[in-house]
């Protein structure tokens, strides 16, 4: 803790260097989202604006799937909110960096927050990295690629139509699996992880098509681990 938290070009560059793997992982997802938007009758401008300002893959795919003519603002708004609920839990864990940022730096860091660069940033924080610009450096390429791929997917239109359940959608999940494995800290994680998996699976069956299972599973697993630790101490 000898060096204060900072925000420098070197941090941006460090983030940029970490981003190619995440960019590759996002390519099929972005194209698929553009294709889905096109097939649901959204104009190129609308699809592009959505990717620019919402910047949330699973939320956009879910909302686009529920798009009707005329659209239900409430249902797509709720879709976006509930799929992104996990960020409520993810943001606070970046406090060691965000606490030292002000104004646009903090606002942009939070705007560019996605699952993958959050996981990378958390790893960097734990490794003692003090340059908070890493978050923007690793997030900006994802944003640019996301918008570009949405446009490409929309333009491809009917040429490459992947039906729901097509294995190209699996690319996104493989990244989550690869990111999950290094998070295992030891046997102490077994109980919380098992609880999280079981609860998330049950909720996914009870409330299909929402993302509540992610939030509820994560909270149940966290509670299980926290309560177990407390019981052990007493």
């Amino acid at each position: 803790m000898s060096i204060a938290t900072r925000f420098t070009w070197a941090g941006i560059r460090r983030g940029l260097r970490a981003s190619p793997a995440l960019v590759v992982a996002g390519l099929p997802f972005g194209v698929v989202t553009g294709l889905a938007a096109q097939s649901q009758g959204l104009t190129l401008a609308e699809a592009t604006l959505m990717s620019m300002f919402v910047f949330a893959g699973s939320a956009q795919l879910l909302a686009i799937g529920a798009w009707t003519a005329p659209v239900s603002v409430l249902s797509v708004g709720l879709a976006s909110f509930s799929v992104n609920l996990r960020f409520l839990l993810m943001g606070p864990l970046l406090a060691p960096w965000l606490d030292h940022l002000r104004g646009w730096r903090r606002g942009l860091s939070l705007f560019l927050l996605v699952d993958h660069n959050w996981a990378l940033s958390l790893r960097e924080i734990k490794a003692g990295e003090r340059d908070a610009a890493y978050l923007i450096g690793s997030g900006a390429p994802l944003w640019i690629t996301w918008v570009a791929c949405t446009i490409a997917g929309h333009l491809l239109g009917s040429v490459v139509a992947a039906p729901p359940g097509h294995p190209v959608y699996f690319a996104g999940l493989t990244v989550f699996i690869a990111l999950l494995l290094p998070m295992w800290r030891g046997l102490g994680d077994l109980l919380p992880w098992a609880v999280a998996g079981a609860v998330a699976f049950s909720v996914s069956r009870l409330l299909p098509g929402s993302s509540w299972h992610i939030v509820v599973g994560a909270l149940a697993g966290g509670l299980a681990g926290g309560l177990r630790d407390r019981w052990r101490r007493s």
Binding site: M90, F176, M183, W184, D189, A196
Partner: peptide, 14 residues
């Protein structure tokens, strides 16, 4: 502290 791992487990498992 348990949330990050559990969040990914909750995403991946179902």
């Amino acid at each position: 502290a348990y949330v990050p791992g559990c969040l990914f487990v909750s995403y991946v498992t179902p």
